[in-house]
Design a binder for these strands. Structure first.
Length: 745
DNA sequence: TTACTATGGATTTTT
DNA sequence: TCCATAGTAA
């Protein structure tokens, strides 16, 4: 028990010992926040507090998982603590009680793309013009309202002008449709839970009793809805500990309200406030620069990070002629250091926007540097995966009209918009769901020649639903793939892109298999739910031998020995929008983003800029980021800028410099980057054909399932599907290439 | 119904 | 430049 406290510094210890009543921990970057939180929970349990009464809320699955793992390693009861994201916590609460709000407890969760499709439908249905009412901004409006706990009725009352009224009208229709589809979007998950707590005190009380001790991580990122959720839960026992850093608030555009953390002491006048200011991550030079930059923001809680670490090297600032040269500089720097014994995984390349990754990737490819891009188009947002998921969603819940209309013509079966429209009309007239309309197809006389194709689709779905009743998720996926001939189009295409898609499908099947072996609840609905609530960054593992590329936003919470911050230019970082129409508020958020970026670096920080870069196909000339001027010159070593021009980058010079890179541009253009999002340069080229050193009847070993006997081997595209009977896990179908089967004697 | 061309818009995105 | 969308031809 004492050893728990021994591992902490005095301030951290103070936070751990304060167990009852409101507590605000301001945790600077790299100050051992997670350590403090987990120790606090572990210490609680030694003081006789039941793990059953503790709730720790995070924003990402990754943070929740990390916390759980640490707790398990620290305490026997650690595994019983409820540590989860806002969304998964609320989903669990809703599954139990949402029927009180008139929803069915097996509601589906819409992701961003589903919401977008739904908004488009609503705009069309209200006969609004997409030019005057762009779906993106309507979607943003709706999300904003929900973050602020504003219902459609209230929204309509709150706004005055005609256009905003229309926005509110779309919101109302959107909400109505979601309910008809028994669906919740991400914002609803929080909103409906707050509603549930507000309208049904008995439900609230049950959870207040259950969660007598609350902890909220990244509190600076909470929006109004999440704030209400926390306040309601904490109201009764007031054992609320929030942890955050106002300087790392970078999601205000997603509704995060920085005031939540700044006003905590007003919400709880008896709150204890603890500041963790000792940094264990970065060198003094990096910290000094970060401190100096963030000091330029006015609305913040005063704090100065310090460290016992050595001063370290100076920050390196490098200006190149164009973005190709920028990428090349980074690549040679990495190559040089790896040659001297460093490893790829020690490097991260950060940028403001995802679009910046491509020219960087090109240079990495040219230099043979293995890398991995995080974010961008997510795995579950890829077309082929979304299509396959839509099938699963329909099988799970045929009332899911959005999913149903997505796949009705995938792969092509000659059912176009016109037919869908007619079915929709019939469904609307008779007040039934799309699927019900399919059941009564014969009544829809207008369909004529298309009737047969549609009936075929309907029967296909019905068969799959029946099949799913007594088969596992993986089997259902395989069955779906085979009866729909889903992969046929891709297999025939035989392009790099199509190959990538097939690989994604394989990877998806593997995810399903993984799910089945890891999860308690192996049902299809549990699988879909898990998928709905994961992000790509959750997949980040330190052990991959690759350089990591990601946006500055995605990098929050991570650390790397060596960090490159790229595109350090006016209009790129800070972004053009924050300069043009943002006002000081948005610029301050950019500055916080810069602070986040700097504090990711442990040993060495590089900042790079390019004099010119391509923007939407046109060359633009940027000046150096204003943030550069905020770094004291003794902390930074600058290359590529004339001394007299340090304050202001030239605008028209150096067009000649481009020719220096003409050579490399030629090579660059010949590099095929299709599907290179997750490009990992293989050390040895992988064999095109899968060589199998086992046959039917052989005993093989697989990482997860152990040993089993091969029952069948079937070709599947460029791969083989191997059926194996495992004594401990039953019969599994695995892809040879991905499941790494080894023959055992 | 689909396959083509023209047009205009384009941050960040924990779930 | 890349992408989604709208309009048109077949």
């Amino acid at each position: 028990m004492d050893s728990l406290l021994d591992k902490l510094n005095p301030v951290q210890r103070e936070a751990v010992l304060h167990q009852k009543g409101p507590l605000l921990i301001i945790a600077g970057a790299g100050s051992g926040k997670t350590r403090t939180l987990t120790h606090r929970i572990a210490y609680m349990m030694t003081q006789g507090i039941s793990p059953y009464n503790i709730l720790a809320i995070t924003f990402t699955n990754k943070a929740a998982k990390e916390m759980k793992e640490r707790l398990v390693s620290m305490s026997e009861q650690g595994g019983q603590v409820w540590a989860a994201t806002f969304h998964s916590t609320c989903v669990r609460i809703l599954r139990r009680d949402i029927h009180r709000l008139g929803y069915d407890s097996n509601f589906v969760i819409y992701d961003a793309a589903d919401s977008e499709r739904m908004v488009k439908l609503c705009i069309r249905e209200l006969n609004l013009n997409d030019k005057q009412y762009p779906h993106k901004s309507v979607l943003y409006f709706i999300s904003q309202q929900k973050d602020e706990l504003i219902t459609p009725d209230e929204a309509e009352r709150l706004v005055n002008d005609f256009r905003s009224k229309k926005y509110a009208e779309v919101y109302r229709l959107y909400q109505k449709k979601l309910k008809e589809n028994n669906a919740l979007d991400f914002d609803d998950i929080i909103f409906r839970t707050v509603e549930l707590f507000s309208y049904f005190p008995d439900v609230l009380e049950r959870y207040q009793e259950r969660f007598k001790y609350l902890m909220v991580d990244e509190y600076q990122d909470t929006n109004t809805a999440q704030y209400r959720f926390v306040m309601l839960l904490a109201e009764k026992y007031r054992n609320l500990c929030v942890v955050g850093d106002d300087d790392q608030s970078i999601y205000s555009w997603r509704g995060a309200n920085i005031r939540n953390i700044l006003d905590f002491e007003k919400d709880f006048t008896d709150a204890k406030v603890i500041k963790l200011e000792q940094n264990y991550r970065s060198t003094q030079n990096i910290l000094d620069a970060a401190n100096r930059i963030i000091c330029n923001n006015c609305k913040r809680k005063e704090k100065i990070l310090w460290t016992d670490n050595e001063a370290g090297e100076r920050i390196r600032f490098n200006v190149s002629d164009n973005e190709a040269a920028e990428g090349n500089f980074i690549s040679s720097e990495i190559r040089e250091q790896v040659k001297n014994g460093s490893s790829y995984s020690r490097f991260a390349i950060l940028y403001r926007t995802n679009a910046q990754s491509r020219p960087l990737e090109e240079q990495l490819v040219l230099n043979g540097i293995p890398y991995r891009v995080f974010g961008g188009i997510r795995f579950y947002e890829r077309k082929e995966i979304k299509d396959l998921l839509a099938y699963l969603r329909v099988i799970n819940n045929p009332q899911d009209g959005l999913a149903l209309t997505r796949i009705i013509n995938v792969p092509r079966r000659g059912i176009g918009d016109a037919s869908v429209q007619k079915i929709n009309e019939y469904a609307g007239d008779n007040d039934i769901s799309f699927f019900m309309a399919l059941e009564q197809l014969d009544q829809i006389t207008s369909l004529k020649t298309r009737l047969k194709a549609i009936a075929g689709f309907r029967d296909l779905i019905k068969n799959l639903i029946a099949y799913a009743k007594d088969h596992t998720v993986t089997e259902v996926i395989n069955e779906t793939l085979s009866v729909t001939e889903f992969t046929m189009e891709y297999a025939l295409e035989n392009t790099e892109e199509a190959k990538g898609r097939l690989e994604n499908i394989e990877a998806f099947i593997n995810k399903a298999t993984e799910f089945e072996s890891a999860s308690q609840d192996k049902s299809l609905s549990a699988f879909l739910e898990e998928i709905a609530l994961v992000a790509d960054i959750d997949e980040y593992h330190e052990d991959q031998e690759t350089v990591s590329l990601m946006t500055l936003h995605s990098s929050k919470g991570l650390e790397f020995p060596r960090v490159f911050i790229t595109g350090f230019e006016e209009g790129v970082f800070p972004s053009i929008r924050s300069i043009l129409d943002g006002g000081e508020g948005e610029l301050e958020e950019e500055r916080r983003l810069c602070y986040v970026g700097f504090t990711r670096a442990q040993e060495k920080l590089y900042i790079t800029a390019a004099r010119s870069r391509n923007r939407f196909g046109q060359t633009v000339y940027n000046t150096i980021s204003r943030f550069y001027m905020e770094i004291p010159s003794n902390l930074i070593e600058t290359k590529g800028l004339e001394r007299r021009n340090r304050k202001k980058m030239e605008t028209h010079d150096n067009r000649t410099g481009v020719s220096k890179y003409a050579e490399i541009n030629k090579v660059r253009n010949s590099v095929d980057l299709t599907g290179a999002k997750n490009y990992i340069q293989p050390k040895m080229p992988e064999p095109k054909n899968v060589l199998l050193d086992y046959q039917i009847g052989d005993k093989v070993r697989q990482l997860k399932y152990g040993t089993g006997v091969v029952k069948d081997i079937q070709p599947a595209g460029a791969d083989y599907e191997v059926t194996i009977e495992f004594p401990a896990h039953g019969v599994k179908k695995l892809f040879a290439r991905l499941s790494k089967l080894k023959k055992v004697e």
